[in-house]
Structures are given as structure tokens and as C-alpha cells.
Deep mutational scan, measured.
Amino acid sequence: KELVLVLYDYQEKSPREVTVKKGDILTLLNSTNKDAWKVEVDDRQGFIPAAYLKKL
């Protein structure tokens, strides 16, 4: 599985998104959309803007 590093805090703005903190390391589920990547956070799945993430 692929991991990503969170570069900036992000507060979810819709039910399809998830809230993350800078420095979190998350499982990347889908990065086919260049604008928003799907990740898993504490058994929740949701989207975060790709600009907030860096592949490890």
C-alpha cells in the first residue's frame, strides 16, 4: 500500500472529506484525480486536496 505525508492541516468541508493534521502519515487509496486524493484516516475514507499531500 502507498503512504502519503500530510503537509498542512486540513479541515473537512464536506462529508466526503476527512480532517488531517500536518505530519500525519496516511494510507493512499486513490490518486487518479489530480485535485483530490482519497485516503484512509482512522477507519474513515475520504478526500483531501492533493496539494496537501506528498507521496512517500
Rank of each mutant, 00 (worst) to 15 (best):
S14V: 06
V20W: 11
V18G: 02
L26M: 03
K1T: 11
V20E: 01
T27M: 10
G46W: 13
P49K: 05
A36S: 14
V4G: 03
L28G: 00
R16G: 15
E2K: 11
T19A: 05
L53I: 04
K54P: 02
E2N: 12
D35L: 14
L5C: 12
K22H: 05
K38A: 09
L56H: 04
T32P: 03
A51G: 12
I25T: 04
W37E: 00
Y52E: 00
L56T: 04
R44G: 06
V39S: 00
A50W: 05
K1R: 14
R44Y: 07
V41I: 13
L26Q: 00
L26T: 00
G46M: 15
P49Y: 06
S31H: 09
G46H: 11
A51S: 13
N33I: 06
L53K: 01
D9W: 05
V4R: 01
L56A: 03
P15N: 10
K34T: 11
E40F: 07
S14H: 12
K54H: 11
L53T: 01
K13S: 10
Q45C: 11
A51N: 12
A50L: 05
L5K: 05
V4K: 02
K13D: 06
I48N: 02
D42Y: 10
V39F: 03
T32L: 10
K38L: 15
K38H: 12
Y10K: 00
D35G: 11
T19Q: 05
D43E: 11
L56E: 02
T32K: 11
V6Q: 01
K54E: 11
I25Q: 03
E40I: 12
K55E: 04
S14Y: 10
F47D: 07
P15Y: 08
L5A: 04
Y10W: 06
E12W: 12
I48T: 02
K34D: 12
D9V: 04
N33G: 10
Y8Q: 14
L56R: 02
A36W: 15
V4I: 03
L28E: 00
L53M: 05
L28D: 00
L3K: 11
L26R: 03
E40P: 01
A36I: 15
W37Y: 05
Y10V: 02
D35E: 12
T19G: 05
D43H: 11
V18D: 01
L5F: 07
E40H: 06
R16S: 14
V6Y: 01
V41M: 10
P49G: 04
L5P: 01
S31I: 05
A51F: 13
Q45N: 07
N33C: 13
K13W: 07
D9C: 07
K1V: 12
E17H: 09
D9P: 04
L7Y: 03
K22W: 04
P49I: 07
V41F: 10
D42G: 15
E12K: 15
Q45K: 09
T27R: 14
K55I: 13
Q11V: 14
K21A: 07
V20S: 03
P15I: 09
L28Q: 00
L29A: 03
Y10S: 02
E12V: 10
S14P: 06
K1H: 12
K13T: 13
L28R: 00
E12Q: 15
F47P: 01
L5I: 13
R16N: 14
N33V: 05
E40W: 10
Y8P: 00
G46Q: 07
Y8T: 08
E12A: 15
R44K: 11
K38R: 11
L26H: 05
Q11N: 13
F47L: 07
I48S: 02
W37T: 00
V39D: 00
V6F: 01
Q11F: 14
K22E: 06
N33A: 09
D35F: 15
I48M: 11
E2W: 13
D9G: 05
D35C: 15
N30A: 10
K55M: 09
G46Y: 15
K38C: 15
K34H: 11
A51W: 14
D43Y: 09
V4T: 02
A36F: 15
V39C: 05
P15L: 09
R44E: 04
A36L: 15
L29Y: 04
L56I: 13
V4C: 11
V6E: 01
K21Y: 10
V41Y: 09
L53E: 01
A50N: 04
G46C: 14
K34V: 12
P15G: 10
D35S: 11
S14G: 12
L5Q: 07
V20M: 02
L3C: 14
L29F: 03
W37A: 00
K34Q: 12
K13H: 08
K1Y: 13
I48V: 15
E12N: 07
G46F: 15
Y10R: 03
L26F: 04
Y8L: 09
L26A: 07
E40Q: 15
K1P: 12
P49Q: 04
L3D: 02
T32I: 09
F47E: 06
L29R: 03
E40Y: 07
I25Y: 04
G23C: 09
L28V: 06
N33D: 13
K22F: 05
E40G: 07
N33H: 10
V18W: 10
A50F: 04
L56C: 13
D9N: 08
I48R: 02
K54Q: 13
K13F: 09
L56Y: 08
D42C: 12
K38M: 15
N33S: 11
W37G: 00
D9Q: 03
T27N: 08
V41N: 08
Y8E: 12
I48K: 01
Q11I: 14
W37M: 02
K1N: 10
V6P: 01
K22S: 07
V18S: 02
Y52Q: 03
E12S: 15
Y52C: 14
K1M: 11
V4Y: 05
K21N: 07
G46S: 06
V18K: 02
I25C: 06
L7R: 04
A36Y: 15
P49V: 06
S31P: 04
L26W: 05
W37K: 00
L3P: 02
S31K: 06
T32D: 15
L5S: 03
